[in-house]
């Protein structure tokens, strides 16, 4: 064997091996989330222990804001009302979104993307306009009740300025999130597993319960969170569709930062809202068993 002269290794190791590339890729995102989400939330937590006097925040550590929230029953009513509304909306979305997402993922063929985009397209029209249009359709002078009136029937009271109308509005606004979340899970699901289940004697329902549902639970749970959280904080929809008996926690909260200018109390309400949201997310998190989710975690 003849060995050749070996050249000295290049001076200076290429940058690729120096800075871990994952840091370059992930770092900006982490910094961004810290600056635009974490620090502001932290600020709100701090402010919730301060005081507002004549529209100005003052550093004066106290628990008064939380005491107010605890003492005044109105806030509790708002919170419970919002939570129940959010629960109802999530449930309706869950039940309706599954077959829809399933159909798109399984039978959508090459038009899958288009069918999903059609669900997202209404978002090009602003929330307020769509809510106003819903009001125009459901309200007293709206399409449905006018049509009923023309054929001599009573208008449907439940659709006008009631919590039912507000829930309908929420379902309208957040259903696409639910469908999309389940769809994204289902397109990664191997439908051949269902054949296996059926060959082994499971009926369609059994196969769904034993195979499809558990393997797509993460996507479904994300969908539920995506519906529940904004519903819980919703302010605009109940204001326009809900009528006088639908003041929500979000409405009251945004008033603190708007009309009444009581930022400290608003901050405390924000903290409560955040804690409730976190509790829900954690609750969902506990139901997820990554080892049984079928998610292998990327590489190899």
């Amino acid at each position: 064997m003849t060995s050749l002269e070996i050249q000295a290794p290049e001076a200076g190791v290429p940058a690729r091996w120096k800075i871990p590339p994952q840091l370059l890729l992930i770092g900006p995102g982490i910094i961004f989330i810290i600056v635009t989400l974490l620090l502001p939330l932290l600020a709100v937590v701090v402010f919730s222990f301060w005081k507002t006097e004549s529209y100005e925040l003052f550093m004066d550590w106290n628990l008064e804001n939380y005491w107010v929230l605890f003492r005044e029953p109105a806030y509790r009513v708002f919170l419970v009302r919002s939570a129940l509304g959010a629960l109802a909306t999530s449930f309706i979305c869950l039940v309706y979104a599954w077959p829809v997402a399933y159909f798109i993922a399984r039978h959508g063929g090459r038009y899958r993307l288009l069918l999903v985009l059609l669900l997202a397209a209404p978002f090009f029209t602003g929330v307020i306009l769509r809510i106003a249009a819903l009001q125009g359709i459901l309200g007293p002078g709206g399409l449905i009740n006018m049509a009923l009136g023309m054929v001599g029937l009573q208008p449907i009271e439940a659709l006008m300025y009631t919590p039912v109308a507000a829930t309908l509005g929420h379902v309208y606004l957040f259903m696409p999130f639910m469908v999309t979340a389940i769809y994204l899970s289902l397109v990664n699901f191997d439908f051949a597993l269902l054949e296996t289940a059926k060959i082994n004697g499971a009926g369609p329902l059994r196969a769904f319960v034993e195979v499809t549902w558990p393997l797509n639970w993460i996507g479904t749970a994300i969908g539920l969170i995506l519906v529940f959280i904004p519903c819980l904080a919703s302010a605009v929809t109940p204001r326009f569709l809900g009528g006088p008996k639908s003041t929500s926690f979000g409405m009251s909260l945004s008033q603190q930062f708007g009309e009444t200018g009581t930022w400290a109390l608003g901050s405390a309400m924000s903290v409560v809202l955040f804690v409730v949201s976190c509790a829900i997310v954690l609750l969902m998190g506990f139901t997820i068993n990554p080892r049984r989710s079928g998610f292998t975690g990327g590489r190899r």
């Binding site: 635009t36 989400l37 502001p40 939330l41 600020a43 709100v44 402010f47 969170i225 959280i229 904004p230 819980l232 904080a233 302010a235 979000g250 909260l253 945004s254 930062f257 930022w263 608003g266 901050s267 924000s270 809202l273 955040f274 949201s277 976190c278 997310v281």
Partner: peptide
């Protein structure tokens, strides 16, 4: 997991 309202208000504050 954070509502839009909270994002808006907290960044304002």
């Amino acid at each position: 997991f954070v509502a839009e309202l909270l994002i808006g208000i907290s960044s304002l504050a």
